[in-house]
Write a protein that binds this DNA or RNA. Structure first.
Lengths: 333, 333
DNA sequence: GCTCACATTGTTAGCGCTCACATCGGCGTC
DNA sequence: GACGCCGATGTGAGCGCTAACAATGTGAGC
């Protein structure tokens, strides 16, 4: 009951299986007439090449493995989708190996699973501290790219320029006339958080503004809400930069409850530009990372490794864009 | 430079490759002592079985292919993540084949790509009309499950009970005292939309309430906002059920702009229970589908097909839950 | 007409694994 | 003590494909 194999096609076309293989792989030295005959036979039989057999002999399948943790968050989900799209354009399938925790063991296991399938390359979305360690102890025999990983590690890496994005967001608020800007940050162990904190602090210091205490949170609207409850009570707070849009949503909600008008009394800037950000109350000024560009860069790094064989220490940084909406205004006088 | 193969392990352990295979596959008839020796050899060599070779000989790889369209939307993304999680528990990897449009050609191609890899089974997330046709013309030789597909087609199907969810949401509003409930619906060609419309209409009719004109939208906050602008102008509107939470967000924003208080003047109920819904202004009452249950059911249907070989016409329906928050109140008198 | 270069096609040998079957030894049974 | 049975292990074939090489055919150049 198995489908037709290459030899069946060959027999029907009156050639050898090798010629069929050549047609399939676009080998140049095949006579046009022969090619057509083979293609006709392929169509007639509904033949579908067996990737597993090819993977066995070549030692590599046309699959890219992705290791990620929480693909429900907007960022990772978008990235995954973009990666999948880009990979498809290059003729690769994407296999997802999600992982409960981003610790060394979990990551190693996920990578091992992908290696067992002889994937052509691996993309690890490793946005937290604990993942860093794992990456250096992985088998070196497979092209691998890290996304959102530790900027300090000597591995191929693609990242969004968190620092620049945060700097721009903060500067935007300062330029609107605010004396300083508060920051609701993401989880401490995420590199994204660290970069956004750094950019925020840099911008404040560059402007000679006071650096207020950091307000730590996770990525959720819930924790944004809790932070917002505190910020709302402090009369001096006139500008808040949150580490992502969902935090901003929680902050907005808290401010609203406390009767603090946004942007009249307090300005808010987020990060991510989730599709809904334009419909928050008020519409949220935010920083948009270009996930498609990240995906493209990751794949390019992988493809480069396929060709050179060398695992370079390349890295790519993608600059995000500030999207201005109505959640920012001059501070009240 | 290839890694060790089964024969290498066999040689080191002083057994035949077949015995190694038996150990790997948990075959019962292996002496404990032999098993340990083999496992030691595996560990020592860092041996990793080659899935491609196994797939070649068995004709099936331990991979489940998923065909989906827009994995950035909250629903599909959650479903995909849940599917991946569940599959991993059963020892399967998940390969994603996303597709630009859900028409017959795109779906067939995506399925073909998966078949070329000899996946063990395929899950098609086929929430729109145009996908239905394709499903009946697919090769029958692979276990396949449809999620959110056409309830009218004779294919294995897992769905969230949209009708029940919408009915409950609408009834909840009626029970709060509203004379009738308006509905902002999803895209016309989505089954999800159709089911939610049906449940809404049923609940109204069951209560003898007037059925107001349908307000059509897509899934975005942007279109919710546009609909909200209309709804806000109609004094008679006191209760709105939107087809998802993002629409609700847009509606809330429009109502806010027009000075219509939620829930004092107008009550709103959404669908999906996105994590942020609890932090909308006001917190949104909504209907929560259980994606984990959908994923579990899909995989069970697939596994059942693996065993029986028969492609049953099974179907599973997952009931969603109403989550009440503060966006619903009695209508103004 | 013969040689050589080159384009085209065929042949052979695995890739690493599982399946079906063969083999071997130890045990209980009459 | 010979017989059969069963658990434990080995042997050989082949899954469908590609890579390397061998074997043709074709035309230019002399």
């Amino acid at each position: 009951m198995r489908g037709p194999a290459m030899t069946d096609v060959a027999r029907l076309a009156g050639v050898s299986h090798q010629t069929v293989s050549r047609v399939l792989n676009g080998h140049p030295n095949v006579r046009e007439q022969t090619r057509l005959r083979v293609q006709a036979a392929i169509a007639e039989l509904g033949y579908r090449p067996n990737r597993a057999a090819r993977a066995l002999v070549t030692g590599r399948s046309q699959v890219i493995g992705v290791v990620a943790q929480n693909t429900t968050l907007y960022g990772p989900a978008s990235l995954l989708a973009a990666l999948e799209q880009t990979a498809a354009e290059e003729g690769f399938a994407v296999s997802v190996g999600s992982v409960r925790d981003l610790d060394q063991v979990s990551i190693s296991e996920a990578v091992e699973r992908h290696l067992a399938h002889r994937v052509a390359g691996i993309v690890v979305i490793a946005p937290v501290e604990s993942a860093g360690e794992a990456l250096e102890h992985l088998p070196k025999d497979v092209p691998l790219v890290t996304v959102d990983g530790d900027p300090g590690r000597p591995v191929p890496l693609v990242t969004v320029d968190q620092v620049a994005g945060a700097r721009e967001a903060t500067r935007h608020l300062l330029e609107a006339g605010h004396r300083t800007v508060w920051h609701v940050s993401g989880p401490a162990d995420w590199f994204d958080s660290a970069g956004r904190i750094e950019g925020w602090r840099e911008a404040l210091q560059a402007a000679g503004a006071e650096v207020p205490p950091l307000v730590p949170a996770d990525w959720s609207a819930a924790s944004g809400y809790r932070c917002g409850q505190m910020l709302a009570r402090m009369p001096e707070v006139t500008a808040v930069f949150t580490a992502n849009d969902h935090l901003a949503l929680g902050v907005l909600r808290a401010l609203h409850e406390y009767g603090r008008k946004v942007p009249d009394e307090i300005s808010v800037v987020g990060f991510d530009d989730v599709p809904e950000a334009a419909y928050f109350i008020p519409p949220l000024t935010t920083v948009r990372p270009d996930f498609a560009a990240v995906a493209r860069a990751s794949l390019d790094l992988l493809l480069a490794q396929f060709e050179s064989g060398a695992v370079g220490e390349l890295r790519q940084t993608i600059a995000p864009t500030l999207i201005t909406r109505q959640s920012v205004a001059a501070p009240p006088r």
